[in-house]
Design a protein around this nucleic acid. Structure first.
Lengths: 328, 328
DNA sequence: CTGAAAGCGCTTACAG
DNA sequence: CTGAAAGCGCTTACAG
């Protein structure tokens, strides 16, 4: 039998109520009995039963985190930011993984989180669909997307994805490049990809350049998309610089060009989107427009803790910066 | 108010007992009432309260997974393997992260898992210390280390780490290399590093080679360890091949040598340990001794499900294979 | 096929 | 400073 409060109470000659108060530091008891109780709990190897205590207190201090085994690698940074801030706020975190592009898996995971009555829910690099958003609203659980803009009716904290496209392009143009490719983003299905493309095209327009359809090469933000795009540009296009949709994609571009004997940045420049550590681990190192993922995580938790009205949906933009390295 | 079983029962004109049975598919009721109840539950947006049901049924079907923001990147594969097999066994999974080399953080996380009364606990790329093992035994929670050998009193499923060192070395010797380095492993603190070093030295001995202290360059399995090691070998040693302690380390070696103008594999060969996708993403691609991480995850879950006696500690070795690519 | 009742291990007004 | 008692939302023998 696992030891429970009643066991401690019996030994200490107290009521379970008192033991509970002491164990939870609720105050209103003598130091002496408190330390005696603590010691007994220790000797017996007592561990609170969370199910029982959550149920009795009708409260929950854990925040749920859903992410996906995605093609990009920034998850870790966001998650670290979230966990650090959660700890500060005395919240626990449980993570669950939903399979990419698998609504059934997502629904299952969200249902699980609802059943656990989490205090709040964070989606990292995965977009909740309308069904899931409906479930969450009905269950009264405040949720947020972190690390990506979204067009759905959920709060989110992310970079300004339009600005990412715009600033990356603007930077390359000002550096003297004339024909700028945009590679590896999912434009047909992904809102983030669409926003970045819009930013990219707007920057072109601002600088009196006309967009050429051949400059764009779609993908899914993956390393493989970069490999594929490198071949594409080698055969079909004449860009002198390319914006990679993610660090992974840019890495793929780099290796793809290497395999084809194309020199970066001499033959062609690359500008990466994300700016994770990966950018310093490639040769040459990737110039990037860098997102502050840790801050996104922190901000998301803060909003969760302070959200006054869960029915309001909020959006927050986290600042960007450009880091020049060796590929442009 | 969240909707509960009582609400459904009232509307359906049934007892909560019956509703519970229907919702949990326990049998013993008419199809007709069942579907009526299901529909009501649906309309009301009912979600089971896990705390209540776990408490009442004195059971738990979730397995806990503790991992760490580590230097190596195979976690994902192990975790995927675990989750796939967990799903098959109708188990849920919750993940939590413990900070690397931070016993306080580990204790906190393990305590949390115990409080949640998980069905079993898996440690991925993190070693539980004696204190934590004691806690778990006391709480009666069966736990396992997956992905690493351990000298502590816990069950584990991993590759045979001695064999990893042995086979990697043996392979290089048979390929004609004479002076073989061993780089990036943590030998002073890490049991896995020690085992692999032993295997390496044994292979040397078997082939009548005498180990030279200068051939070994310690690290912590990280990318940075590889960078550092490359400089070390460049200055102090004359090896013609190096075993990298992890894919990350081997990548660091590759880039470190690149920065120094040393050619791989012409000047020096590299053999990586792990064999994750990273090996195909470097230029040149990394030859590796490859671990089957997904199988480790699967096996760990199976052992959890079938463990007859939680007081017995078991160890399981997962097969290895060598994959020749371009660095040796 | 269905219900009344006890119980899971805790917490929390309330009363003293 | 402490206890008796009710209750959190479920599940499960037991009886019918």
């Amino acid at each position: 039998m696992r030891v429970k409060i009643a066991d401690i109470a019996k030994i200490a000659g107290l009521s379970t109520a008192s033991v509970s108060r002491i164990l939870n530091d609720r105050g209103g008891y003598s130091k002496a009995t408190a330390s005696r109780v603590m010691q007994i709990a220790d000797e017996l190897g007592y561990y609170k039963d969370r199910s029982a205590s959550d149920l009795a207190s009708q409260s929950n201090h854990t925040i749920g985190l859903i992410y996906t085994d995605s093609e990009t690698n920034f998850n870790d940074l966001v998650i670290k930011g979230i966990m650090a801030e959660a700890t500060i706020n005395k919240l626990d975190t449980i993570l669950m993984i939903a399979k990419k592009n698998d609504p059934i898996s997502l629904t299952k995971v969200v249902r699980d989180m609802i059943e656990r009555r989490v205090f709040g829910l964070l989606f990292v690099s995965i977009q909740p669909n309308q069904q899931v958003i409906g479930m969450l609203n009905q269950a009264g659980i405040f949720s947020q997307v972190v690390g990506a803009s979204t067009e759905n009716q959920v709060s989110y904290v992310s970079s300004d994805d339009f600005q990412i496209g715009y600033q990356a392009t603007d930077y390359l143009i000002k550096a003297g490049y004339q024909r700028i490719g945009f590679a590896g983003a999912d434009i047909t299905n992904d809102y983030v990809g669409q926003l970045r493309l819009q930013g990219y095209r707007q920057a072109l327009k601002t600088h009196q350049m006309t967009f050429n359809q051949e400059w764009s090469c779609e993908g899914n933000f993956s390393y493989q998309s970069g490999i594929t795009a490198a071949k594409y540009y080698h055969n079909h296009s004449t860009v002198d610089a390319i914006i990679g949709a993610s660090d992974e994609t840019s890495w793929g571009l780099l290796n793809g060009f290497y395999d084809l004997g194309v020199l970066v940045p001499d033959d062609i420049a690359i500008m990466s989107i994300d700016g994770t550590e990966l950018c310093t681990q490639t040769r040459p190192q990737l110039t990037s427009i860098t997102q502050n993922f840790a801050l996104m995580g922190k901000t998301a938790v803060d909003r969760l803790v302070n959200h006054a009205d869960s029915s309001q949906t909020t959006t927050t933009s986290i600042p960007l910066k450009i880091e020049k390295r060796e590929t442009s």
